[in-house]
Design a protein around this nucleic acid. Structure first.
Lengths: 107, 107
DNA sequence: CGCTTGGTTCAGTTGACACTTACGCAAGTC
DNA sequence: GACTTGCGTAAGTGTCAACTGAACCAAGCG
């Protein structure tokens, strides 16, 4: 999930994600549409996105087709929803640990 | 919004955001709870978060109290929801522009 | 004014990373 | 097997950002 957030934080990778959002495309075609950078750069971005499970790769002979992984994107979204509030219990644990260490200096 | 995503991509800043999620705290106290890094580092993180409007600062004499900006967090969440799908119109523009350039190589 | 407390900002270091060029590798075609 | 197409990987470079330590600014106290 950390990897997913970092991946999405990159504008170029967001662009790629949008390009393959509604259609499956080969790496070269993605690189053409992105423009401005080399195929190599796009390939490396695709590797990062694949590592974060944000895109799915399908092989077709010598070609590799990519598409966005909507499911993982949804997970990312719900992470942003729940991480903070769900963390309240963990936060309270942290506060209690802190109070044990300091003698309760802040409350 | 780009700034917000980049800010949230940093684990330390996410930690800070969660620390001040449900209570307003002074910078030093935040630094103590974060631990592991200096006040200076935390101060710089707070500046980034403030720049992304993800935290709000309130001055109280010599102290500065921080808290998470839930509203902006909600905006960030809905951005992740809508960016890709809303972008379909823009994507179609891009595709059409691409087809004008290539003569429609991909169907 | 000097001192303390709370906090930011400046200068410099270090590691990560986006990028390019060059090369390597797989899969077809002849 | 040579040649081409499609794409990943390796090596090297420049830039950015997270961090530390020191200096600095603001506010209260004597």
């Amino acid at each position: 999930m950390d990897a997913a957030l970092k991946a999405v934080a990159e504008p170029r990778r967001r662009e790629i994600l949008r390009i393959v959002w509604s259609e499956e495309l080969p790496a070269t075609e993605i690189a053409v549409r992105v423009g401005e950078v080399t195929r190599s750069a796009v390939s490396q971005h695709l590797a990062v996105l694949k590592g974060a499970n944000l895109v799915v790769e399908r092989r077709d002979g010598t070609r590799r087709l990519y598409r966005s992984n909507h499911q993982e994107m949804a997970r990312l979204r719900s992470f942003l929803d729940e991480y903070w509030t769900t963390g309240l219990e963990r936060l309270r644990d942290a506060v209690e640990a802190h109070e044990r260490n300091t003698g309760g200096t802040h409350g």
